[in-house]
Simulated scan of single mutants.
Amino acid sequence: MLTRDHWIAAGFDALDHQGYQGISAEQLARRLNVTRGSFYHHFRSRDEFVHALLTAWEADYADRMLAHAAAGSSLEDVLQRYLTIAAEKRPQRETAIRAWSRIDPLVAEYQQRVDQTRLSFAISACRARTDGSVDAELVGRMVHLCLIGGQESGERSMPAIFGQRVQQALALLRASSFRPS
């Protein structure tokens, strides 16, 4: 029996392989080998489907991701987990949603909320695990931008190497005479 979850999984598969252009009732129905009417049996509209799809994405790519990162034992461990888990997620999905958010206000709302949640987490982790000599907001923002840049640049295909580079950068920052201006 086909459920809403099947449709959402098909939506994620479309994002992973076709980008946001694959998100239509017709294309998803073909992907599931059912009629388009089945889509409207589970969702009243495309917007309702998009809300359900992006709510699932937000739960996985923000809430669960950050819970995993928060379990780190040190700042370096927390931030490495933050970046590594993001790198290990399906990169096409994240890139597709970011591209989609540029043209769809509903998607932009979700993307902005996920970005803000992630940024707030990175800054809070830095504040909680550094002394006053480090500008926690600056470091948190840099790490957050590394997450986005790593996803967009292709570094995401090498999560272990990317995580090591972040650890090296944090070690250099700690060892330097870094003083916020």
Rank of each mutant, 00 (worst) to 15 (best):
E26N: 15
E58V: 00
L32R: 04
R93A: 14
D47K: 10
A25I: 12
W57K: 05
T35Y: 12
H68V: 05
S73C: 09
R30L: 14
G37R: 02
T84M: 07
E48P: 03
R64P: 02
L28R: 07
Y82N: 00
L79A: 04
P105Y: 03
Q80V: 12
V34D: 10
R46A: 11
A99K: 01
F49W: 07
Y61C: 03
P105C: 02
E88K: 01
D77L: 02
D63V: 10
T84P: 05
S45R: 02
R93S: 11
A62K: 00
D63S: 12
S24R: 08
S74Q: 07
R81C: 07
R44K: 14
L54V: 08
H42K: 05
F43R: 03
R44D: 15
D63N: 10
E58P: 00
A96F: 03
D77H: 01
F39W: 03
A96R: 01
E76R: 03
A87R: 00
R90W: 05
R46Q: 12
D77G: 01
A96M: 06
Q80R: 11
R81S: 14
A56Y: 06
K89V: 11
H41W: 15
R30C: 09
E48I: 06
Q92I: 07
A87T: 03
E94W: 09
R81Q: 12
A25R: 10
Y40R: 07
A87S: 14
L83E: 00
D77W: 07
A96Q: 03
V78A: 05
L28M: 09
A67V: 04
W100Y: 06
R44N: 15
S101I: 11
L75M: 01
L83D: 04
A87Y: 09
F49A: 07
E94F: 03
F43W: 02
Q27C: 02
K89S: 15
S38G: 14
M65D: 10
Q80S: 06
Q92T: 13
H41F: 15
V78G: 01
F43Y: 10
T55P: 02
E58G: 00
F49I: 00
E48R: 02
A99C: 13
T55K: 13
L66E: 03
A59K: 05
R30T: 10
A69S: 13
S38V: 15
I85N: 06
D60R: 14
S73E: 15
E94S: 07
T84E: 13
S74A: 09
H68C: 08
W100L: 04
A25C: 13
D47P: 04
S38C: 14
L32D: 05
S38P: 00
L66I: 05
R36C: 06
L54I: 10
A67F: 02
D60M: 10
A96W: 00
H51F: 08
R36I: 11
P105S: 11
L28E: 04
S45Y: 08
D60C: 02
A70V: 04
L83T: 05
A52G: 07
